[in-house]
Simulated assay, not measured.
Amino acid sequence: MEYRDWEILKVLHREKNLTKAAKLLFITQPALTNRLKHMQEELGTTIVTRESRGIHFTPQGEYLAQCAEEALAHYQKIKENLLNMGSTKDNEVAGILKLGVSNFFANYKLAHILKLFKQQYPHVEFKVITGWSKDVSQLVHNSDVHIGFVRGDYSCRGLLKHQLFEETICVTSKEEIVIADLPHLPRIDYRGDYLLKSVIDNWWAENFTQSAFVSIEVDQVDTCKEMVKNGLGYGILSSRTLNGIEDLNKIDLIDNKGNPILRRTWIYYHERFLELNVVRAFVQFIKYLDWKDI
C-alpha cells in the first residue's frame, strides 16, 4: 500500500461514489477503478461492492478506510515533526505550532501574543483549537496539541506547566452592594468553565444558606458583563474580564481565612515536545512575556 492508496480510500469512503472521488483526486474514473482493483488483489480481499446509487464498503473495506485515516494523520504528524525539528536556511525557527486555547484567552490575549511571536519567528505557522479549559487540558494530555493555554488548576499529571498570571474573582455590580445582601439581589449567571463554577459554588455555600436569586441566565461571559454594566443585576466574574471598565463596583471573593480567591492561567505541555524547535522557542517566549502589559 502506497501513500496514494490510503488517500484514495479516504476520499472514496467519504464520497461513496467513483465519479466524484476520481474528480477530487484529479484522476480518471478508469484509473481509479484499476487502482482499486490492484489494492484488492494485493490484499486478497474485497474492499467495495457496486450498487445502483454508488459503492458500498465491505467490513474489510470499512476497516481499511479507518486505517487510511490513521495512516494519513500519522504521515502528516511525521512531516510536521520533521519540519519543526529543522530550521530555515536563515537559521530561524520554522514549523507548525498546534495550540489549544481557552475561550477567554483566545478572545482577549491570543492574537496579540501570536503577533509578537510572529515578529520574532516569521516562518512559524499556527493551528489553533479553542474551547473550555477542561477540554483544552484533555487536548494536551492526548497530544492533540503541542501547548495548551488553560484557565484554572486542572490536573496536569505527566505534563510540564508554567503559570502565566493570576487574577481575583469578584462580585461585580453597577451600584454599590453589600455581600451579605447577595441572596436577595438579582444575579446574572452565565455558562462558564466547570472549575470556575465549582469555585464560586463552594464560596457561596461557605457564606450563605440560601440559594442565589438568578434572574437572568446567559451562555457567554461577555453577555453577562453587558447585563451587569446596564444595571440588570450583579455577576461573579474573573477580574481580567473587567479590564478597562472603571464604572463598575468590584468586591473580591475571599476564603474563610481572609485570603483572596485566585484563578490562575497556565500553559501545559509534554516535555518531549521541547525537542521541537518551534515548541521550545514558543515556551521560552511565553515565559519571558510581561503579562502586565498584555
Rank of each mutant, 00 (worst) to 15 (best):
F213W: 07
F213L: 12
V214R: 01
V214M: 00
S215R: 01
S215E: 03
S215V: 01
E217G: 04
E217F: 13
V218H: 02
V218Y: 04
V218A: 03
V218S: 06
D219A: 06
D219N: 11
D219S: 09
D219M: 04
Q220C: 05
Q220L: 05
V221S: 12
V221Y: 11
D222F: 02
D222Q: 10
D222I: 05
D222M: 07
T223W: 01
T223I: 07
C224V: 07
C224I: 07
C224H: 03
K225C: 09
E226P: 00
E226A: 06
M227C: 15
M227E: 10
M227R: 11
V228P: 09
N230H: 15
N230R: 15
G231M: 08
L232N: 06
L232P: 00
G233N: 13
G233P: 05
G233T: 14
Y234N: 08
Y234Q: 08
Y234I: 11
Y234W: 11
G235H: 06
I236P: 12
L237P: 01
L237I: 15
S238D: 15
S238N: 14
S239G: 10
S239I: 03
R240F: 14
R240K: 15
L242V: 10
N243W: 12
G244T: 08
G244N: 04
G244Q: 03
I245C: 10
I245Q: 06
E246G: 04
E246H: 13
D247M: 08
D247F: 12
D247P: 04
D247H: 14
D247I: 03
L248W: 08
L248S: 04
N249H: 15
N249E: 12
K250Y: 03
I251S: 06
I251R: 04
I251D: 06
I251K: 05
I251Q: 10
I251T: 12
D252Q: 03
D252G: 01
L253H: 02
L253P: 00
L253D: 02
I254H: 11
I254R: 07
D255S: 04
N256H: 14
K257A: 13
K257D: 14
G258I: 09
G258R: 11
P260M: 06
I261S: 10
I261T: 06
I261C: 13
L262A: 08
L262D: 08
L262H: 05
R264G: 02
T265K: 02
T265G: 07
T265S: 12
W266N: 08
W266M: 10
I267A: 04
Y269I: 00
Y269L: 00
H270C: 00
H270R: 03
H270D: 03
R272S: 02
R272Y: 03
R272E: 08
F273K: 00
F273Y: 05
F273H: 05
F273M: 02
L274F: 02
L274W: 04
E275P: 00
E275M: 03
